[in-house]
Amino acid sequence: MSQRRTLFVLMALFALLLSACGQATPAAPSPSAEASTAPIVATTTTLNVFAAASLTTAFQEIATAFEAANPGVTVVYNFAGSQQLANQINEGAPADVFASANLKQMDVVIASGMVASGQEQNFAQNQLVLILPKENPAAVQTLADLTKPGLKLVLADKATPIGQYTLDVLSKASELPEYGATYAEAVLANVVSYEDDVRSVLTKVRLGEADAGILYTTDAALAADELVQISIPETINSIATYPIAPLAKSAAPEVAQAFVDFVRSAEGQAILVTYGFLSY
């Protein structure tokens, strides 16, 4: 009897190990088929907008406003990492507008001729901000307080762009006399976790598990009433600039241009500002 169990146990064990080994691999990013399969109805125009993931909530509101102002137009989004979107565009995905989270990926599609050079325009900026839980358990008042011994700081991992920006901010601060040369080192000594993405930083601070965290102002805006925000001075802040452009091969170039203009209009900018973006 026990032999049979043993056999079962070992089989289960083997299966389990295989699953455990594979577990750490993140799911393959699935390109959204949404944009390519959207039906094109004769009486309406479908506008395929490829936009950076960080724009999701703000752009959904922009679509509603844009559709209201342009009857017969339907905006279909494909939200993903900018790098992924640039790849998709270069591989021929049907897109009318590209909104990137950085200049680098816009340059990629310009280099391949998918966007005519000079058509790109910056429309928003995002910057870093220091956040604290509402009760502020570590009594942080300024950026300099991040060196307080025993403070629990949560940052994004250096594998993410925001993690890199954060390290930039700390090293820039260390060059200023008001923070001192050992600033970055002292702050990093307080880090309790390097989160794998920026939203986890938000969650850990929101839950009060951490005393402080650094993330984008747009992320902080998602939970503004549960957080204390301390701005990071312009001189050391890393600013991400968002460019937008109509694509050269767009099937509806006028509508694409109208969308770009709308995003840059006072109405579009006002929506972006409510989601924590800086108007460009």
């Binding site: 750490a24 993140p26 949560v154 991992d157 993410t160 880090v191 309790v192 976790s193 390097y194």
Partner: peptide, 19 residues
Amino acid sequence: GNFPGRTQTMPLAIYLGFE
């Protein structure tokens, strides 16, 4: 969380290493 030497086990290191 994820902190090398304190809480970063192999699966976490593999996941972040992948990126």
